[in-house]
Design a protein around this nucleic acid. Structure first.
Lengths: 225, 225
DNA sequence: TCGCCGCAAGCTGCATACATCATCAGCAAA
DNA sequence: TTTGCTGATGATGTATGCAGCTTGCGGCGA
């Protein structure tokens, strides 16, 4: 399988960042499902580097809560139980509510144009049932709304827990794709409307409601497990 | 100079955690002031390990936002400007407000007894003008309130940004010790009262108000710089 | 005297070898 | 049959040497 993001092509400086991102994306896309063993030596061979930068990337992933390193045993992708799942989604809902408390730092027209583009692509991936494309659009939406957050700490945390959460809904995306992609487009449209009205607080609430929708949509899959 | 927390005494297992904690505490206590160079080789010699575990600890500190690693230059303690300072404190205020939204996971009586003990010690450090002791009590209060947070993600974030913030007020503690220590004791008492009344939401608001007080107390020091 | 170029020193980034730990299969004794 | 020991195995943890980057100083030329 090809790389989702061909980031680890740059040669000397900052290999770790690219490797980290590549592995993180694989985890989020369930190419590396929960419980999957992440052997340092194998990854080192694949990325054509030594174990050292791989270890750095894995340690960052552990710090993110995406991987678990046990001495003498190995590194595995973390398994998320229902309780943790609800914790993360609930927390993200609260975070989104805070967005409106800070003035937007980015230029609104720039964000609006990227949102327009994003909506167009979303219509396409929806009709194509392109899961990976849809997943990347979620990244893009996350990126766009992140630019509207006027508090650096909130923005960091917002991003951090997005990456913890995105792989969860991706694990059940097959069963909820129609609803989820429809809501995605609605969400993007609503955000555009809110932005045009200059109502940043509404953006946060729209996102919060959307996270809640996703949470209730995913929850049944956890109960059945 | 002796270690503040003698954590790096344990031999084989998890050296990194102890080293990380030791360096973090030094940064928070301004033993390593902003801009201070953290040379891997020196630290390796001091902790009697190789550069490898030192590098791990420094990378975690960088991820925390406490250190900055630049290739070919060195690792330095980050400098916090006024804007970042306000971002962090404001965000922490919002986080504290969320505490009341989740049921307390810990047993209240346990927390209450540790708070009682904490108040006694606070009176002592206040009359002794014991800055380091006071700093450790802040850690303890952070720990105690952390046990009241019923959402793991919120708890993690709460702790994370505490460590980013605590070194800031410590840098000006000399000028505000009397006010700060007095408020600390008041805060602890108020939290005890709120807990006895079963009003967890009040705990969050008390903490929020206290963070705001600290923020306004520290802000003038930034303006003069 | 001023400015530019190049080299050298010091630091982090990376690769590699070795140490240590956790696990389990296999065997022997109760 | 069960239990407990033991050695092999494969993983991560650590030490160390070298490569590459950044910076500053000194020398050289205008």
């Amino acid at each position: 399988m090809e790389e989702i993001l061909n980031e680890h092509s740059r040669a000397s400086r900052g290999q770790v960042a690219g490797i980290y991102q590549a592995i993180r994306d694989r985890i989020c896309l369930l190419h590396y499902p929960p419980g999957k063993k992440l052997a340092e030596y194998e990854l080192a061979e694949e990325f054509a580097v030594s174990r050292t930068p791989i270890r750095q990337a894995l340690q960052r992933l552990e710090y993110d809560g995406l991987a678990e390193i046990r001495n003498g045993v190995g590194t595995t992708v973390t398994v998320i139980d229902r309780h943790t799942f609800e914790d993360i989604f609930t927390f993200r809902m609260h975070l989104s509510e805070l967005i409106g408390d800070f003035p937007a730092p980015a230029e609104i027209p720039t964000v609006l144009s990227s949102l327009d583009h994003l909506i167009d692509m979303a219509e396409q991936t929806r009709s194509d049932r392109d899961m990976v494309g849809f997943w990347r659009l979620n990244h893009a939406l996350q990126d766009a709304t992140g630019k509207l957050i006027g508090n650096q700490s909130l923005r960091e945390t917002h991003t951090r827990y997005y990456f913890l959460a995105c792989r969860i809904w991706y694990s059940v995306i097959e069963g909820i794709f129609d609803d989820q992609s429809a809501d995605f487009i609605i969400e993007a449209h609503e955000i555009v409307k809110a932005l045009k009205a200059g109502d940043l607080r509404a953006v946060g609430f729209i996102q919060r409601n959307h996270i809640a929708l996703g949470m209730h949509r995913i929850a049944p899959f956890f109960r059945s497990e």
